[in-house]
Every structure is written in C-alpha cells, then in structure tokens.
C-alpha cells in the first residue's frame, strides 16, 4: 500500500489469501524455521530472472557453435557459464529447433517451467486448456498462436514431469547476418523459447 501515491481505499486491504501468506510467513519466522530476510532475498533472485536471460543464451548459441554444443550437451552448466545460476535442483535440457524439428514445452501435471532462466511463466501456460491440448493436438495449439507448422516438420512436445526443465532454442531467422549478440537477443521472445512462436526479424520487446 502506498498512501503517498494514490487515494487509499478499502481495495488496498489484503485479501484472504494474502493475509494467510503473511500469517504463515510471520509464524515461520517467529518459530525460527526460516530467517526474516530470506523471503525478501529470494524475491530479489526471482525478480532478476526474466526472458532477457534466455534470450542472451539463445543469441550466444546462434553466434558461438562451441557454446551451442555445450548448451545442447548440458543446459544448466552452459547457463551457469553465463552466470545464470540455478537455485534449485533442476537440470536443463535445451531443445534445438531445426528445419525439420519443432519443439514445444508443457507441463501436464502442474506448471514446471525453466524459471531460473526465463522467470515466471505466463498464466496461459499454467491454465488447463494449454496443458490439456499441447500434448494431444500440438499443431492446432501452434496454429492458435499463429505458428502453423509444415507437415514435413516433426513436432516434439516435451512434458516436464521430473527434475528436468526445458528451453527451446529457436531457429535463427533469415536476414540476421551481421547482427550483434544484443541485436539477436532483442529478437528472441519468451514465447519462442516455450516453442509456441518462431523468431522473426521484426524487433520487439522481450515478452
């Protein structure tokens, strides 16, 4: 609540679940089960994880074939080379799109997502329709996202169920010869790294 910024109103009052979260957190701190600064610290960690990190990984892989090979062999280790630490026990498999293979990621059981390198997933990724249909009719799902896939291209849908997370390494679009790493990174969207979109040369903000 920021009383200095706007007219305070009853809508600023926290809801039931926000109250529950605050109460649980305070009780855990009082009982010395967690430290008083740990949540704040972890929020800083989480806030620092955005699709911009994944975009840098992709851009580097496009420009540096040896990095690309290391990335495909061990996604987590390659990200850690760039300082993208993994604060949990998950591994990362990077899925390379080619002219003949298009990858898509989903979690049908819950909402597993490569958070250390992409940040928080969008709501649609966590909601039922995507999770129900991505494994059953990926072509229709991709078409809904405006990404039709040719019949002769194989679609691989990766469903996360264990400790591995996925990141799609999209195809580098044509017409980007001579682009710098930053220019390439600015083309890569979050949705391209989930696999529901392709990367094109129209520059836009990271989504």
């Amino acid at each position: 609540m920021h009383p200095h910024d706007h007219t305070p109103s009853i809508d600023d009052a926290p809801g039931y679940y926000a109250i529950m979260e605050t109460a649980i957190r305070e009780l855990l701190v009082e009982k010395h089960l967690i430290g008083p600064e740990e949540i704040r610290r972890q929020i800083e960690v989480l806030d620092s994880r955005t699709p911009a990190l994944g975009a840098k990984v992709v851009a580097k892989a496009w420009l540096d074939p040896e990095f690309r090979a290391r990335l495909l062999a061990n996604g987590r280790a390659a990200c850690e080379e760039l300082g993208i630490t993994f604060y949990d026990d998950t591994q990362l498999i990077v899925l390379e799109n080619t002219d003949k293979i298009h990858n898509l990621i989903v979690c049908t059981l819950c909402s597993c997502y490569p958070r250390p390198v992409l940040g928080s997933p969008p709501d649609w990724y966590k909601l039922n329709p995507y999770r129900a249909r991505a494994v059953k009719e990926p072509r229709k799902v991709l078409a809904e996202f405006g990404t039709p896939i040719e019949e002769d291209v194989e679609i691989r849908v990766s469903d996360s169920t264990a400790a591995v997370r996925y990141l799609v390494l999209p195809l580098r679009p044509a017409g980007t010869e001579g682009f710098s790493e930053d220019e390439l990174a600015s083309l890569v969207t979050r949705d391209a790294m989930i696999g529901v979109m392709k990367v094109n040369t129209v520059r836009r903000n990271i989504q």
Partner: peptide, 28 residues
C-alpha cells in the same frame, strides 16, 4: 490435464501481485 477436452487457449497473463511473489519465494 493431459489429453482432457478443453477449449481455446486464452493468452492471459498478469503481473504477479506482491503477495503472490512472496508466496513463490516462500515455496523456494
């Protein structure tokens, strides 16, 4: 959810509210 009947995918997303961020941090 895998394979269950479902409707169109609405591309909704929202900025996490402060309590939701704290909840996620709490889980970690």
């Amino acid at each position: 959810m895998g394979g269950l009947p479902a409707g169109p995918i609405e591309r909704v997303e929202h900025e996490l509210k402060p309590w939701e961020k704290r909840c996620h941090a709490l889980a970690d």
